[in-house]
Amino acid sequence: MEQNLKELKIELSKNGIFTTTLEELYNWGRKNSVWPLTFGLACCAIEMIATTMARYDLARFGAEVFRPSPRQADLIIVSGTVTKKMAPQVVRLYNQMPEPKYVIAMGACAISGGPFRDGYNVLKGIDRYIPVDVHIPGCPPRPEALIHAFMTLQKKIEEQSLSGADRPRHLDADLPSEFPVPSFGEHGLEPPNNPDVFFNEPGNPLKVIQ
């Protein structure tokens, strides 16, 4: 059915008739107005700031309006080392963002703990607690890398279908709106990860990796 529609669209466009679907229109609007949260954690935040400035100009992608409150933000860029002290705050901020919401883990630290991985107080990747859409390696990643990640996210939003089993989280009423916030225990954060978003079994790699 969907294949037929696509063929029909191509056929019509060949004859000079431009058609679109509600889904495409909706996703087109969504992907070009992703507002990030003003949220910097470490040195990656400096690169994130540089990305928004005139030289790299994130405004070209409709994302220059960094929102100072999670209530108006669509995207949280986890830019830097997440310490165990900070992790509950990151998860809480993510919880307070309205759906649909996306996460970019920027830099080696946000992905895995990076050079501070062996530190006693460093979280080994924010994807232990919240679902990450795009990972950017680098220490720190250059602004071009963040822009690439942003374009990847836009592509992902564009391709999301609004119905069916693989529809995005915000259109699935059964999925929870909040993720459990870790708390401090005797040996670091409890729980050490959120099993709903973080699992790494043989043959079943991290489901969140792009």
Binding site: S69, P70, R71, P88, Q89, V90, R92, L93, N95, Q96, P98, E99, P100, H170, L171, A173, P176, S177, E178, V181
Partner: peptide
Amino acid sequence: SPQKPGAEKNATYECGLE
């Protein structure tokens, strides 16, 4: 709009702190 309220989501915004 897909509304998914929750206790934490509706809580007062204190820069991530409770």
